[in-house]
């Protein structure tokens, strides 16, 4: 453990390391959450030693396309809620998690919404007012070197190859 109370473990050691911490006095489970790094997902669990008032964070890294990890439910009952949430929002499969029904979202929503690959369609299909540029008063051309400005949160190629958005796209003014 480094001075910041951070432990990095291999996915295979996840359950064993946390179990060891629990036996050492880290009896209070705080949360599990996920950070999307693109091709990988980082899962982090925060546990606390309530007597010594020391927290620690256990991190592991999973491939985004095969995100599977052992459940911590057998160690901390309360982990089930966080794991269900992580499963729903980030699509992590927790092996040994009994009830993995979605807490909030309907199954029809499709891709886990907190994954960065899950684009916000509303941002892609609405004209971004920020793409507008000053028009010229009769002079030629404007400035052709200006790149098309994409709104934040929309991947560059999202919906671009489809004829969904016909006509003006806001930046042609």
């Amino acid at each position: 453990m480094n001075s910041h109370g951070r432990i990095d473990v291999a996915p295979a050691d996840w359950e064993q390391v946390v179990s060891g911490l629990q036996r050492e006095g880290f009896t209070l489970f705080d949360f599990i959450t996920v950070v999307d790094r693109g091709s990988t997902l980082e899962v982090v669990a925060r546990v606390v030693n309530p007597v010594a008032r020391v927290p620690t964070m256990v991190w592991t890294t999973l491939p985004a396309d095969a995100a599977e990890l052992a459940s911590l439910c057998s160690i901390y009952l309360g982990a089930a809620w966080c794991e269900r949430e992580a499963a729903e929002m980030f699509g992590v499969v927790f092996i040994g998690l009994g009830d993995s029904r979605p807490l909030l979202l309907r199954a029809s929503l499709g891709e886990p919404p907190m994954r960065k690959s899950s684009a916000l369609v509303a941002r892609a299909i609405r004209d971004w007012p920020g793409a507008a540029q000053s028009t010229d008063d009769g002079r030629q051309g404007g400035n052709p070197s200006r790149r098309r400005q994409l709104p934040p949160g929309v991947p560059e190629d999202f919906l671009r190859d489809e004829p969904l958005v016909s006509g003006t796209t806001g930046d042609e003014r």
Binding site: L109, P113, A122, G153
Partner: peptide, 9 residues
């Protein structure tokens, strides 16, 4: 929440 998939706009 105008861009959220679950919120009524």
């Amino acid at each position: 929440y105008w861009d959220a998939p679950t919120v009524t706009k």
